[in-house]
Design a binder for these strands. Sequence first.
DNA 1: TGACTACTGTACCAATCAGTCAAGCGTTGA
DNA 2: TCAACGCTTGACTGATTGGTACAGTAGTCA
Lengths: 198, 198
Amino acid sequence: MARMVAERSDAIASLAEVFREHGYEGASLALIGKATGLGKGSLYHFFPNGKEEMVRAVLAEIEQWFEDSVYSPLRDGDDANAAIATMLNETATYFRSGRRVCLVGALAVANTRDLFAQAIRRYFVAWVDALQAALVRQGRDAEQARLLSEDAVLAIQGAIVLSRALDDPAVFQRAIDQLHARLAFNEGHGGGASGSTL
Amino acid sequence: MARMVAERSDAIASLAEVFREHGYEGASLALIGKATGLGKGSLYHFFPNGKEEMVRAVLAEIEQWFEDSVYSPLRDGDDANAAIATMLNETATYFRSGRRVCLVGALAVANTRDLFAQAIRRYFVAWVDALQAALVRQGRDAEQARLLSEDAVLAIQGAIVLSRALDDPAVFQRAIDQLHARLAFNEGHGGGASGSTL
DNA sequence: TGACTACTGTACCAATCAGTCAAGCGTTGA
DNA sequence: TCAACGCTTGACTGATTGGTACAGTAGTCA
C-alpha cells in the first residue's frame, strides 16, 4: 500500500493550513495526520525531525511563493506602481481578506519565535526591502521609501489581526485600499496622494 | 500552610505574562504553577474552570486597565490632542516598545479565537470607538475619524508583530512616532500633518 | 478552646503528546 | 522473476497533558 502521496511536497500545502489554524504547539501529530492523510510513519519518513522540520519546509515554500509572486516583481518589474498594486492585490488574495492568518506573523508572536527566528526575519526583511526598492524606483528618496515600506508591511500584519478580531474582512480590505492610496506616487512632489483624503 | 497568596488577583499579573509568553495551549499547568508559585490545588480553587477561566480573568483585567488608562481619557479628556498623545505613549510603554506581545491580538490570531471571541471583539471595538471619539472632538468628520482610528489600532498591532519578527524595538517606536504625526490635527483643513512628510 | 472557612500539597486519573520501530506493501530495475 | 528500495501502517513507549479528589494546615471568629 505504498505511494499514496507521490511527493513530500504534496503534503506541504496541507501542513501549512494546519499550522496556520492551530499554531505550532496546537498542531498535534494526530491533527497533522488527519489533514495530510499521512500516518506517523510517512510523516517521519518525509520529515525525520518531526514538527520542526515540517514547519521549516512550510516556511521555505511560503518564502518561495512570496519571492516569485511579490518580492521579485517589486524589485525588478519595469512599472513600479503596477508592481505595488499587484503586490497589494496578490496579498489580499493570499490572506483571503484577513480570514487567513499569516503563519510567519503568527510564529513571530508566539514563543516559537526563537526556533524559527532566522526564517521569520528573512521573510519580513525581504518584503520590506523589495517594497522599498519599488518605492525608490518611483522616484522617492531612500529614507522615505524605507519608512513607507515598513509601514505598509506592518499595516498588512495588523490588518490581519484586527479583521480577525472583529471577524470582519471589510477591515482588511479597507486597510489594503488605504495602502493603495498611500503607496501611489503622482508627479513631482514627495508624498503620496493620501494626504488630503485622510 | 494557607494564605501564601492573599488574593486571587495577585496571581493575575503572573498569569498574564505566562499566557503572553507561551500562548493558551503552550501555557501548561506546570508552567502556570511555576510562574504563579501556586499548586494545582490553589489554582483550581481560584479558577474552578481551569485555564479558560484564568484567561478570562486576565482579559478582564487587561480590559479594565485599557479602559482606565486609554479609552476613558480618549472619550472624555478635555484636550483631544493630548489624550491621543497620551494613548500612544501609554501604549508604547505597555507593550514595552514591541518586546511585549499583545495577548488579545495573539489570541485573535490563534485558534483559540472562538473561545474568547466576545472579549477580543470588545477590546478592539472599545479601542477604535474611543479613538474615533477623540478624533471627532478634534474637529474631523465621523467617517474620516473612523478610518483613521481603525488604521491606528491596526498599525499598533502590526508594529508589535513586525518589531518582534525583526527583533528590533526601533521598528515599533517608528510606528508610534508616525502615528503621532498622522493623528495630530492642526487648523482647519481635513487631513493630518503627515501628508507632506510622508 | 474549638469549630469553621480558606487555602494548599499531593496522589491520582484518563487522555493525549511526540516519537520509535519492525514488519509489510507496492513499485522499480535488472 | 526476484531482489532492492521507498513508502506505509499501526502498535508501542514514556512523558506530559488538564483536571479531580481529598486530607490536611493555617487563620479567624466565637
